[in-house]
Amino acid sequence: MFIDIQNMSFSYSNSPANAVEDFTLTINKGEIISILGRSGSGKSTILRLIAGLEMPKGGSFSLGDKTLFNNHIFVQPEKRGIGMVFQDYALFPHMSVQDNVLFGLPKMSRSNKLKRVEEVLELVELEGYEKRYPHQLSGGQQQRVALARAIAPQPELILLDEPFSNLDTELLVKIREDLRRILKKANITAIFVTHNQNDAHVLADRIVKIKDGVIDQVGRPCDLLGSSTDEKGDIELLPEKELVSV
């Protein structure tokens, strides 16, 4: 098994209840997994736990032959070799597209680095945008730069947090298909979090439904069809972009 997550649990310091409880999942190499759930269900927390941005209370997680955490080990996020695309992309505003992508590349010659930038920008169809800055790009372009940046260091696993939440419908359909094509072409294992059933069905090989921090259902998209949704496929209609209390 390429990825093995066993009994992962987590609680926030200001709350005694577990935000994630006994999350267990195994994933094959090259598989695309969708974690589907309402906002507040703990789905983003699961992603952050896998990334190493939050420290789990218990459980274990291994990627390939490396253990990334168990009761004795906690590997820092920068040492995990996992890529992540953030919900708001988090492109560094003071760096050009090229510098954003260059930023995460491991030590190699400048020419090799530039070659890699060229490769990934070609993959996301953004050749010629190297010198642009994030604020000069559209939402869809920003999203593709974020993806290119995450893919460039050739991570073993890529995590995507609500990758389509900032895109309009027309763009969404194209990008969703592009994303699957790009991930499959590069044979990258991916986990993405969404509240939208349609996204999950189109993109994922397997869907994990989360409810209140616990796995509710796991299965192939065709097996999970017909669950309660509205016609748009959203199971979550609450506005997510408002002030958040930290």
Binding site: L53, E78, K79, G83, M84, D88, A90, A150, P153, L159
Partner: peptide, 14 residues
Amino acid sequence: TDFRDASRMLGVSS
């Protein structure tokens, strides 16, 4: 903390 998290996810030290 998003930009910081993004950087660390790219393998860059704290």
